[in-house]
Nucleic acid binder design. Structure first.
Lengths: 217, 217
DNA sequence: CCATGTGAAGGTATTCACAGCC
DNA sequence: GGCTGTGAATACCTTCACATGG
């Protein structure tokens, strides 16, 4: 079925596939089967085929998928085909790490501006980006920045997001450990690192005391 | 229905509720309605009631939920009722930020050990934790550490996880941007920061050119 | 013969509406 | 009147099995 709405869960997996395809592409191969890709990315092959079926026929029966063509299509769907510029708000420990993080480039995302409230930081350069005062956020509309990464303390998060919405940012990745409200036209994804760790114990078997004995097995 | 398996999606939301409850608890109130909590955490009230219904009657009709009692129960379910010690592997930019991250304590998680391959870092102290050589991972079984946070480069991730499994770690939060394999008895949650950002453009409306005009509205 | 693409079946989670209780 | 707890309805996603195509 070629024309179909793409389920959210499929959209969530597309970056995983993309990562796998880009890696395979670096290996010099031209085609990849759903089976091979499945093994590499850790998703079942039938799930992969179903996911790809939502947006067209990219596979050749008996051969597999053309890596380049499929990667290009996924990028198009995710709108990652052009390099996108992002601003970072909050250059603390986490913010600094994000500035230095090489992974964003993988998906064509580039942090080109950084803002902080701390006067001591303003004017300094971190990873080739000059840190500006948050008061300068008003200058964003003139620059080609549509995305923002929020790495400020929870107490400042909502005010920061409000400001970002004001200056026309369309998408926000929020690292502050709290819910932030925004109009529907602005997409906010909150990524609370500690919360992810918090559900780990639930899935872990037994108590802490059997670590040593378990290790011997 | 009091005795019921708790759906995974509910487990994923429990830490969100817990955060909200702990905050409300600090406000001195004793009870909270599903409506108030909903507003605070950004989840619909019926969803909250349904989620809570999976593990017992904690609400009083006309009054709401007893904050302390409910928080305690959620902690018990998530097995966060005792402080849990974690080890950090990889003290680079991201690892250092995680060491300094205050959010883990919210859920009773404490990073008490750090490991790196870099000889220059070994022996130094970061946030009160002495950085040890990864060769010392073998010493983990004697310590009360069941959880590990992996913040090493992608190329080293699988080897690191293998080693952690060997020394009896039961749960791993993996920040490396790749899939890692582990036996079923060890729970691995992979958190690829760039991937989260990668699906943001998909949900953003229109192109980059209308930023300025949009901001005027 | 191998691998895709997809209807159909099955399972899981969300949403609703309201009975029951304080 | 306000709020919980929950069956029932609905929507969504996953899994399977296999027809179809190279």
């Amino acid at each position: 079925m070629r024309y179909h709405r793409i389920p959210d869960e499929t959209v969530r997996r597309l970056p995983i596939y993309l990562r796998g395809l880009m890696f395979s592409s670096g290996q010099g191969r031209e085609h990849i089967s759903s089976r091979s890709l499945a093994e590499f990315v850790g998703v079942h092959s039938w799930q992969i085929r179903k996911d790809f079926s939502y947006f067209g026929d990219f596979g050749t029966p008996g051969v597999g998928y053309n890596i380049q063509r499929l990667a290009k299509e996924i990028k198009k769907i995710l709108r990652l085909n052009a390099v996108r510029q992002a601003a970072l708000i909050g250059v603390g420990d986490l913010g600094s790490a994000l500035l230095a993080y090489p992974g964003f480039a993988t998906y064509g995302l580039d942090i080109v501006a950084a803002f902080d409230v701390d006067k001591k930081k303003i004017g300094r350069t971190a990873n080739g980006v000059e840190i500006e005062s948050v008061d300068q956020l008003g200058s964003l509309p003139g620059r080609e920045i549509t995305l923002a990464i929020v790495a400020v303390p929870g107490a400042a998060a909502q005010a920061t997001v409000d400001k970002l919405v004001d200056v026309g940012v369309k998408g926000i990745l929020n690292f502050a450990p709290c819910r932030v409200a925004a109009p529907k036209r602005v997409k906010v994804i909150t990524l609370d690192i500690a919360m992810e760790l918090a559900r780990l114990p639930y899935y872990m078997p037994a108590g802490a005391s059997d670590v040593a004995s378990e290790a011997r097995k």
